[in-house]
């Protein structure tokens, strides 16, 4: 019952997104596209947090690496190989994450890792703002939306809403990939490590290697999201990876619910919806956003997804209850 209802809801939401440009205002379409990308970005963060128990505060830096790689390549005239550029940006993010992971993961976890990644992301931002070759503070504007070709078919992503639909497909693929990683053997092992690292190690799991791989995958997906974002916004600036960007996935995840795979996505859309519906109330943005966040944290400490699961469980009111509550309680510290 729970599964079917949630599944139906998901299909409905997906269809609404795909059909959005047919009826909605173009500002709303742009916001929806942005939200999809940051939703995937948040999903990649939660792959690390919800599954491996590692909280990075510098994910914005990896997003920025992907976006800048894409922007520089497109400016350099490699528009023809868009797919290759996405792959390259993803690899760049993965490689940087791997390097950081090798140096940092064995030494520090928890809040130290959080602050370390935060400092690295800030360093990257400051450095980008100093390099004239990538436009310093003003970044790289006028990024083209390239052609996209598979086999013989070529689509001009620069026209109309083509890039939006391309984003829909790309994000769906990334979500599917994340789902597969999270629910496969790898994801299950990660969860074991998160729940009890000593027992996992005792069972013969190379915990360090698993965490390192998770760190790398998460970084690669974050960079991929950044790479998709660059032609969407058509401009990248050093602030694309600022502290606000790094806190975005954290907010979305906790708002939506860290124990649920869909939590970060739900959080992202909820956040955008709040921002869009309060856009005319200028001057008190901070109070509105802050109060809503506070309300959600206090009323639904398991996030929206957790509250939803609990609601369904109560409505169906069958002995399945224990399953729902155990899911809802997962972010509780073990």
């Amino acid at each position: 019952m729970n599964r079917t209802l949630s599944g139906l809801l998901l299909i409905f939401a997906g269809a609404a997104l795909v059909l959005l440009p047919l009826w909605a205002n173009s500002g709303l379409v742009f916001l929806a596209g942005t939200t999809m990308v940051v939703g995937v970005f948040a999903l990649s963060w939660n792959l690390l947090f919800g599954y491996a128990g590692l909280a990075s505060f510098g994910s914005g830096g990896l997003f920025s690496i992907g976006a800048y790689t894409m922007a520089v390549m497109l400016r350099g005239g490699f528009e023809g190989q868009f797919l290759l550029l996405i792959a390259l940006s993803t690899l760049a993010g993965g490689a940087v994450a791997l390097a950081i992971g090798i140096v940092a993961l064995r030494r520090s976890t928890g809040i130290f890792l959080a602050i370390l990644t935060l400092a690295l992301a800030e360093l990257l931002r400051i450095t980008l703002a100093k390099i004239h070759w990538v436009g310093a503070e003003d970044g790289i504007p006028n990024i083209v939306r390239p052609n996209f070709s598979i086999g013989l078919a070529t689509v001009d992503l620069g026209r109309g809403n083509h890039y939006y639909w391309f984003l829909c497909i790309a994000c769906a693929l990334l979500v599917a990939l994340s789902w597969w990683i999270a629910h496969g053997r790898f994801g299950r092992t990660l969860r074991t490590i998160r729940l009890d690292i000593e027992r996992a190690a005792f069972m013969g799991v190379d915990t360090h290697r698993y965490r390192l791989v998770a760190f790398t995958i998460s970084g690669a997906i974050a960079a991929c999201a950044g790479a998709l974002f660059a032609p969407w916004a058509q401009i990248v600036t050093p602030d694309i990876g600022n502290m606000m960007r790094s806190t975005q996935p954290i907010l979305f995840t906790l708002l939506g619910g860290a124990s649920s795979f869909w939590g970060p996505m739900i959080g992202a859309f909820l956040f955008s919806a709040i921002e869009f519906s309060t856009r005319t109330l200028v001057g008190i943005q901070e109070i509105i956003t802050g109060s809503i966040l506070l309300g959600v944290v206090l009323l639904f400490p398991t996030g929206v997804a957790g509250a939803w699961n609990a609601l369904i469980a109560r409505l169906t009111a069958r002995p399945r209850r224990d399953e729902a509550t155990s899911a809802a309680l997962q972010p509780v510290k073990e």
């Binding site: 205002n25 173009s26 500002g27 709303l28 379409v29 742009f30 916001l31 600036t237």
Partner: peptide, 13 residues
């Protein structure tokens, strides 16, 4: 920039 673009597209829409 993306905030500005969102606002711009909304208003032109």
């Amino acid at each position: 920039p993306e905030g500005a673009v969102t606002a711009f597209r909304e208003l032109t829409g």
